[in-house]
Nucleic acid binder design. Structure first.
Lengths: 211, 211
DNA sequence: TTTGGCCTGTTATTTGTTTGACAAGCGCCG
DNA sequence: CGGCGCTTGTCAAACAAATAACAGGCCAAA
């Protein structure tokens, strides 16, 4: 068991979806489920469900299926953790506001500890419980509070300029909304890109070139 | 040439990134580039670059490389189009505001024609040039203006309820920020999911279980 | 207690994507 | 004009992921 040696990225990316569906089933009073039932609900195959769960040791019972509580608990242990990740936000524009609100209100496992901008009009305002600081204070802040995750909601030039400093300051993971390709530069850092522009462009292509 | 029979999804998803890099190079005065140079800049392989471009006929010259202008133009023809896609926004909360602003100010190929909400406080306000209407007016509006794309910035229950109507009203593509899994239901519809929650969860997993 | 149906964990097969290899084309230089 | 270096387009091999197949465990019922 606990064969967490090297779980492939596609599997990891599917975990949140499993969590969502299983969480729902628990809300609906379901107590156990088979791989085929789950696969059917999620639009995938029973094979994939079993193989995915097996990456983490496989927490089902032959002849029975999977206990919803066990399943939910195991996946939660994988995705979340007792201690939240201290997180800072860079760029408090419209998107920054929306994202920080999401991070504090709806997301689990993160704790917003700081927000930074260069716009004098923003500095000093409160954003989801933290005071927006000027980006000049970033170094001092990070050395003191050691945040682990940075959310980049700034324009590309800004992201490009600040990313190396953040890495040097010990940031381990980026939630990147900027158009700057972080992952090219550092590969001992985890980057989760949310490229809205790319997403929209491929949507447009697919809508126009519908098979 | 023009072997646009069936281009695989991974290739389509890479097109925007190509566009970004090539656009930049043009800004920097570069006029031609080889597959290996481009691959190197983007952190991929020359093989992949050539094979990707070849899905669309291959617009390079042996011995020379790719002309930046030609390349940019060809990719733009694939991703964008002369006529913009009429788009409506559902859900004008904080995220809806940020996304609509992005859509109108920064994105290319889309035209926001309507915005809808259920919150009486929002109805009548202006959002990026359109007046926010009550969702009860959605059917009439769609029958009149025939929008092609819908942006879903509403909570899951709302998305779940409204999605079938939107499909019935002729929506061809969804930019889905809700936690509802549209793609499971309709497969003649294009859905581009931006699941912020999923994205954050997998980031957390990867930060904690760094290889 | 034994039998049969069901379901998991795991191994095998198929499918799809990425990487590598090479022939043919272009331009430059002698 | 011919050879050489470089580059594309394309085909082949390697790799990764998704699907299918199956052996073994569990429960229920007889």
């Amino acid at each position: 068991m606990s064969n967490i040696n090297k779980v492939s990225l596609p599997v990891i990316k599917r975990l949140p979806k499993y969590y969502r569906y299983i969480y729902d089933m628990k809300q609906n009073g379901i107590t156990k489920i088979s791989s085929s039932e789950l696969a059917n609900a999620m639009g995938t195959t029973a094979s994939q469900v079993r193989q995915d769960f097996n990456c983490f040791g496989g927490f089902g019972q032959q002849g029975i299926g999977y206990n919803i509580d066990v399943l939910l608990d195991e996946i939660a242990k994988l995705l979340f953790s007792d201690e939240k990740l201290d997180t800072i936000l860079l760029g408090t524009g419209m998107l920054g506001h929306a994202i920080s609100s999401y991070l504090t209100a709806e997301a689990r496992g993160y704790h917003l500890v700081g927000a930074f901008d260069i716009d004098p009009k923003e500095i000093g305002n409160t954003l989801c419980g933290v005071t927006i600081k000027h980006i000049d204070e970033l170094t001092e802040f990070c050395e003191l509070h050691k945040p682990e995750v940075a959310v980049l909601c700034l324009p590309r030039a800004g992201a490009q300029e600040i990313a190396p400093h953040l890495v040097a300051l010990g940031i381990k993971g980026f939630w990147n909304f900027s158009h700057y390709d972080l992952s090219v530069m550092y590969d001992n850092i985890t980057v989760e890109n949310v490229h809205l522009g790319d997403s929209l462009m491929s949507l447009g292509y697919m809508v126009r070139n519908k098979d």
